[in-house]
Design a protein around this nucleic acid. Sequence first.
DNA 1: GAGTGGTCTAGACCACTGT
DNA 2: CAGTGGTCTAGACCACTCC
Lengths: 230, 230
Amino acid sequence: MTVAARHNWQSVRDEVRRRIHARDWAPGSTIPNEVDLAAEFGCARTTVNRALQSLAEAGLLDRRRKAGTRVALHPAARATLTIAALQDEVTARGQAYGYRLLRCAEAAPPAHIHALMPAAQQLHLRALHSADGRPYALEDRWINLAQVPAARTAPFEQISGNAWLLANVPYTHGEIAFFAQTAAAEAAADLSCPEGHALLGLDRTTWDGSAAITRVQLLYAPGHRITTTL
Amino acid sequence: MTVAARHNWQSVRDEVRRRIHARDWAPGSTIPNEVDLAAEFGCARTTVNRALQSLAEAGLLDRRRKAGTRVALHPAARATLTIAALQDEVTARGQAYGYRLLRCAEAAPPAHIHALMPAAQQLHLRALHSADGRPYALEDRWINLAQVPAARTAPFEQISGNAWLLANVPYTHGEIAFFAQTAAAEAAADLSCPEGHALLGLDRTTWDGSAAITRVQLLYAPGHRITTTL
DNA sequence: GAGTGGTCTAGACCACTGT
DNA sequence: CAGTGGTCTAGACCACTCC
């Protein structure tokens, strides 16, 4: 039962993962502590620690001081979505990126936006992103003018709301939701697709501390898929 | 210019992140190397290394040996999706989980499945997951019998394909894609929704090494949202 | 070749938490 | 209280890659 005594944390991680997958260590059971594993693998405890932390981050292990390290009962799959700027998303596919501003005006926000940004008037943007001249995604954005007054004079004819905000306004955290929606008349016209078509969309809200910065809804053109690996 | 000399890697990470957001270090520029930063913060280089690695993982920094550490030009947002088992998803909402097998048979797979699992006959499952008695998600799954012959005798009337596979078959990696689709007649009937309704769905394929284990398509009931934080 | 990040080590102390 | 993971340190060597 000699274990190949490699001394890098990745090989320790791989071996531990193998034992979990092979059910050497069953879901819910406690695995040996770091000192013992270090002895078994012939490396420093620091190295084992690094490996186990990486697996805990991936959701395969639950670690608690004193209680020890257990194999997760429900090894929920964790997928990391990389939400790039649309421009990067399109050029990464080798297509030509296009951008057209459809609307930019101060207006009274609807209730669900007003709940996020409590002021009578906020900045409202609509824009179409395209790939090789075909509609790629429709953007509908509200920007909190109380937090970002400079947005009033930003050149949104040339730069997308996302790009300008990324370059000019820091944020601390955000929230994303994916959903499916049938294309209403206006969206269908903008995306050049039949009314009633199923569209994949997302809502994203970003905050700086406790103040909401912006809320954007993106509707992708028909057939769009968002992919990731496990 | 005294820096609060905290000695934990999180505080170093926070300070570096602050400087990036504050544009002290502009996107694309090279930041000081680890030795210098360690001197400035009054801590060991290891600690700085841990902090910078965490920021690189988050996408804020690009690090290369010899070239140094640069602030990422396009700080793509990374969101971690936790894809739990449907049963956990439903019970986590405080709803009663229900499961009903609709079909379980060996059959000739369609072309896109056959491309993944090259054999004439594969196991085909359809099942409905419900929350508080209402349809929650419709599952359509193919299982590679060449890889998982035991699936022939698994009790899929009582346990979902996902749950049985998780508990019995290890996998090494997978792929997930989200999409929107209009409800066809059969799906609409199973989900008790009007035909033509927009549904959020996902395709998930999992492999063990180079062999595909299973491919599942999940269609969520109308209105479903998948959320995550940034 | 030389500068930078990547990692390992051995030891130490701390923080949390189950019993 | 005591056992476990969390982290820090100082030094060392290695691996990569730009010049």
